[in-house]
């Protein structure tokens, strides 16, 4: 299931929902991303997140499908917030249920890495010195591409 939303999410409730994925599930991997105080700029007080409604959900659905072809994925959950977010707020949640840990780790990491370089979201950092649209990082592109080799 995929949600793009302005409101916060309850990671514990999402984890509980992932546990309800059948007796074949032996591993759950989750990732949560938070708003950090430094990025392209220092003293970040918050973020503004923009997305391309419709295309975003389609791209993430494609990533979950690809993960399901490559690894054992029994259930996957992606939540991404948009709009204004304050320091230390939750931005993104990825959770994957698999039979074994290696598949859960890989599928969760793949979805997160691929989301960063292919899902149409854009971050703007807000700080005392003003606003700054975040630049795409070569390191993020490299992590995304590493899954294709």
């Amino acid at each position: 299931m995929i949600s793009v939303q302005t409101e916060d999410f309850d990671a514990a409730a999402e984890y509980a929902a992932l546990r309800d994925s059948g007796a074949g599930t032996g591993a759950i991997a989750t990732f949560t991303g938070l708003v950090r105080d430094s990025g392209d700029t220092q003293g970040v007080s918050g973020l503004f997140l923009e997305h391309y409604p419709g295309m975003t959900e389609q791209m993430i659905a494609g990533l979950i499908e690809e993960a399901s072809r490559r690894w054992d994925v029994r259930k996957a959950r992606v939540i991404h917030r948009v709009g204004e977010l304050l320091l230390q707020e939750q931005i993104v949640f990825v959770g994957v249920c698999s039979a074994h840990r290696a598949d859960a780790f890989s599928a969760c990491e793949f979805i997160m890495d691929a989301l960063k370089t292919s899902a149409p979201f854009w971050k703007k950092e807000l700080s005392e010195s003003g606003e700054h649209w975040v630049e795409q990082k070569a390191s993020d592109v490299a992590r995304g591409e590493a899954w294709n080799t």
Partner: peptide, 9 residues
Amino acid sequence: AFFPPVTGG
């Protein structure tokens, strides 16, 4: 649609 490289996550 035209847009800058994406920076979500």
